[in-house]
Nucleic acid binder design. Structure first.
Length: 535
RNA sequence: GGGUCGAUAGCUCAGUCGGUAGAGCAACGGACUCUUAAUCCGUGGGUCACAGGUUCGAUCCCUGUUCGGCCUACCA
């Protein structure tokens, strides 16, 4: 195996050469160009960040007052000196502020904005008034001469720490007047285009770090920035967790590497354990483990983690995806639908701020979930259908699923395709099962859990027969699970919710890759490298 | 897997009805130093994805390859 050169990994050009030269000159001025730390001030109580400084009451008040004054001024007119002086006095009374961040623009002139990834604060370096450079030696020696020299050597995207006082500029922006500058880290490659962001979707997904930088630098954006997408994702997940915990659920972790891939109909990833010399499967669902816990006495359990399915990749499929799965003793499918609806309503409200979200031109209303039997759904969208037990799902997939834009629980599934769910008391051929569809995507799947060990055994045997018949997605018999059920499991309902798809809906993203930080992509190839290696 | 569109400067893109290429930004040099995406003046930068073919001549036409987008089929 050949080890690629650094220059092959980090492409060198006139842009990187310029940055490298700046770095060498900075090294002469400050010594260590990759210092180990920068201690920020703590005026706001905790360590000050750019975002927190901008939320100081005095800063907010100064901003508001300046905005009001500017509104009364004519185009190009400067705010009166007495207003500025008064605000500057208040801002200066805060004392010395030390903050750090990345340059959001090339350092033209003496103004530049720093970002902490979220907010931007303008900083001002006064050439005439002068400012000191802090060396990155053990004592952080103050060099009063070379502040401006160092300033000219920093590039768009570099990290600096600055110390100084806050003030308002002639245009009314609260800024930091730099008295001391400390160089913290260099960006050796050019920053993403601040107008267009990163246009190449491959780079956006493969180099998510660059995509995230772009979203903090970009001047104009349509829709959510990448950062906002993942902040929304975090909000959804935390609100779901809180909701479950507020309702008595306990979070558990069950095996990801399992001796049998079961609990769902899907092809697994296979791996090998050397010491035990056995094949293991990345789990396709945690379902059977969670129900073992219900047997063991955990009446309400949930697990929020990844499942792995060795299947195709599409706008709504990633080989690993995040599923929230939970079980509740003594509940049936109807109770679970009620609970799911309430939980999703609260989560959407918290993450999106409202129950009606706009998705690809449609308005999706999470305030209203319809319940529709599969047979009725087919007759609604394909009245000509001649439904039999065997063709029902096909009719559904082809004619109904794409039309289910608003949140819809499809209920009354054929028992034959639901080997882990209980039959309906009213109709033994129907499973007490639902799937939730939104915008043509399956978002959740739940049912009244089958808890009769003998019937479960028979259903597994039936699945194994289908497997023999060539259906390699049919479930495999899990002997220990049958044994677990024989200890007695209370009546229970369970559900799995596809978190990635839910996040797609809340962030108006068409592709699942846009809501997963590091989605699976083909291995990267360096075309010019491969050439040299042929033959 | 099938269809379809694409690959031109570090980035975003234009262009050549076939005569080896341009803009804006970025970089570099200088001027400016209370500016809000790009201040002003100047400079450098391209094997036009790769390999063949047609042609006096190909970045452009043809064929193939690689990589990628979009649509489509199967799985949540």
């Amino acid at each position: 195996m050949t080890i690629p050169e650094f220059e092959e990994i980090v492409e060198q050009n006139d842009q990187t050469e310029a940055r490298r030269e700046h770095l060498e000159k900075l090294r002469e001025l400050v010594g260590n160009v990759y210092p180990n730390k920068f201690v920020r001030s703590s005026i706001g109580g905790a360590e000050d960040t750019i975002s927190s400084v901008l939320k100081f009451a005095v800063v907010v008040a100064a901003g508001d007052e300046m905005a009001a004054v500017k509104a009364s001024l004519k185009e190009g007119e400067r705010p009166p000196a007495e207003v500025k002086d008064k605000l500057n006095e208040q801002l200066k009374a805060l004392g010395t502020v030390r903050i750090a961040g990345r340059l959001t623009t090339p350092p033209r002139g003496n103004f530049v904005h720093l970002t902490d990834g979220i907010a931007k604060l303008q900083v001002y370096c006064d050439k005439k008034g002068g400012f000191a450079l802090i060396k990155n030696d053990a004592e952080n020696t103050v060099d009063p001469e070379n502040g401006w020299t160092a300033w000219k050597l920093i590039d768009h995207g570099d990290f600096v720490g600055v110390e100084g006082y806050l003030f308002v500029t002639n245009t009314g922006e609260v800024s930091l007047h730099v008295e001391r500058l400390q160089f913290l880290a260099k960006a050796m490659v050019p920053m993403p285009d601040k107008m267009h962001g990163i246009a190449d979707p491959e780079i956006r997904q493969r180099q998510r770090y660059a995509d995230l930088i772009a979203s903090s630098l970009q001047v104009e954006t349509d829709g959510m920035t990448t950062r906002e997408v993942f902040e929304t994702r975090a909000k959804v997940i935390s609100s779901l967790r809180r909701y479950l915990e507020d309702h008595g659920y306990i979070e558990v972790e069950t095996p990801m590497l399992t001796p049998k891939a079961t609990g769902a109909a899907a092809k697994p990833f296979v791996t090998h354990h050397n010491a035990l010399d056995i094949d293991l499967y990345a789990r396709i669902a945690p379902e059977l483990y969670l129900k073992r816990l219900v047997v063991g006495g955990f009446e309400k359990v949930y697990e929020l983690n990844r499942n792995f399915r060795n299947e195709g990749i599409s706008y709504k499929h990633n080989p690993e995806f995040t599923m929230l799965e939970f079980y509740c003793a003594y509940m049936d499918v109807n109770g679970m639908m009620d609970f799911c609806e309430r939980m999703m309503r609260e989560s959407v409200q918290k993450a999106a701020g409202e129950l009606k979200v706009s998705y690809e031109g449609n308005e999706i209303d999470f305030g209203n979930f319809e319940r529709l039997a599969m047979r009725d759904a087919i007759l609604r969208y394909a009245p000509q259908a001649e439904i039999t037990d065997s063709n029902m799902v096909e009719w559904f997939d082809n004619h109904v699923e794409p039309n289910l834009t608003q949140p819809t629980f499809i209920i009354d599934y054929p028992k034959s395709i639901s080997p882990l769910s209980k039959a309906s008391p009213a109709n033994p051929q129907i499973a007490e099962r639902f799937e939730l569809f939104i915008n043509g995507m399956e978002v959740a799947n739940g049912f009244s859990e089958l808890n009769d060990p003998k019937e479960q055994y028979d259903r597994f045997v039936d699945q194994m027969a289908q497997r023999e018949g060539g259906d390699d997605e049919a479930m495999v018999l899990d002997e220990d699970y049958v044994r677990a059920l024989s200890y007695g499991m209370p009546p229970a309902a369970g559900i799995g919710i596809g978190i990635d798809r839910l996040v797609m809906l809340l962030t108006n993203k068409h592709s699942i890759r846009d809501v997963i930080l590091f989605p699976h992509l083909r291995p990267e190839r360096r075309a010019d490298k491969d050439e040299g290696e042929q033959e």
